[in-house]
Simulated scan of single mutants.
Amino acid sequence: MSGVQKTVLVTLAAVALVIGATVNKVLRPAPLDKAQLSQAGIFLFDAPRPIPEVQMISAKGENWGKADLQGQWNLLFFGYTFCPDICPTTMAELRQVSSGLPEDSRDQLQVTMVSVDPQRDTPEQMNSYLSFFNAGFTGATGQPSELAKLAQALSIAYIEPDTSQDNYLVDHSGQVVIVDPQGRYAGFIRPPLKPTELSQWLPRIMAGQ
């Protein structure tokens, strides 16, 4: 091979590398923009935060804990089944979010309602309530101490009610917690929810883009 031929091959290889890098840059999705996420009500931490182990009960009457938050993305909403307004509205919006996702993203996302009213929200009550939304949602409840441990780790505020009163209400936060597949607190979604925008952003968040 002559010197000229070698020079041509080296030049062609260099051009190919430049073209390949340019095409890859064009095709690669732009990184997530925090300002745009904020407009959609989404806030992601720079580093996910750990979640402690808890011993609770699922809406199916089975043990529920940190392991149930691993292996898929999770959206956790703290509410209760006797809630007259915020909870049914939020759960309906989460159903809208889920139904608006591409099928592969929907299969990788679990929505769980964590009850802040363990006095009335038995597994049977929660299972009946969640079945109304017909969206494959799960639920968890448990002893007040375990609930408080989980809520504190996820920056969820609620006020334990006076359960001696009939038809008591429970004051609680309305944000939705985002948990990554490693079972870590990755961020949160601020109310009011924007289902259409969330359905567009969540697949990119789940893909790490």
Rank of each mutant, 00 (worst) to 15 (best):
L76W: 01
P191F: 03
A207L: 04
M91F: 03
E197V: 07
D107L: 06
Q108E: 12
H172L: 06
A21C: 10
I51C: 06
T22Q: 11
I189N: 00
Q209V: 07
R28A: 13
M56L: 11
I205G: 03
R106A: 12
I178Y: 03
V97F: 07
V111Y: 05
E124Q: 14
E146D: 14
L44V: 08
P118W: 06
K6E: 15
A21H: 05
I86L: 09
L202F: 05
M126F: 04
V177S: 08
G65E: 02
N74I: 00
G187Q: 01
K25R: 14
D33P: 15
P88Q: 02
N63D: 07
C83M: 02
P161Y: 08
L154G: 01
M1T: 11
A153R: 06
K6Y: 10
D104R: 06
S115W: 06
C83A: 05
V23P: 02
R49E: 15
V176G: 00
F43Q: 10
G61T: 04
D166K: 11
D180S: 05
T11E: 08
P144E: 07
A153K: 06
G20W: 01
L44P: 07
E93D: 15
I86N: 08
A140L: 08
T112S: 14
K6N: 15
Q110A: 12
K149Q: 13
F188K: 04
A16Y: 02
V10I: 09
V54G: 00
P181V: 03
D117V: 08
P144G: 10
S164C: 09
Q72W: 01
Q143N: 14
S58K: 04
V4Q: 14
P50R: 08
Y185V: 01
Q72K: 14
T138E: 10
G174L: 00
A47G: 10
R204T: 00
N74A: 10
T196M: 11
T122E: 09
T90I: 05
V177Y: 03
K34W: 08
E62F: 00
Q119C: 10
L12N: 05
T163C: 12
P52N: 06
I86S: 09
E53L: 10
P31Q: 05
L109H: 06
K60E: 08
C83Y: 02
T11F: 08
D171Q: 07
Y168A: 09
D33T: 13
P118N: 11
P195A: 12
L198T: 09
V10Q: 12
A207K: 10
D46F: 04
N63C: 00
Q182H: 11
A157K: 12
A186Q: 14
M206T: 04
S145I: 01
E197W: 06
G41N: 07
K66E: 04
Q119N: 14
S145A: 14
S155L: 05
L27K: 13
P203T: 01
N74E: 10
E124N: 12
V176T: 09
G187V: 02
S164G: 13
Q36G: 08
E53M: 11
S173I: 00
I205P: 02
G65Q: 03
D68N: 14
Y129R: 04
G142S: 10
C83L: 03
K194T: 15
P29T: 09
T141M: 11
F78H: 05
L69M: 11
I42H: 00
F45T: 11
H172C: 07
G183D: 12
I19Y: 07
L147W: 04
L75T: 05
V116L: 12
Q152H: 13
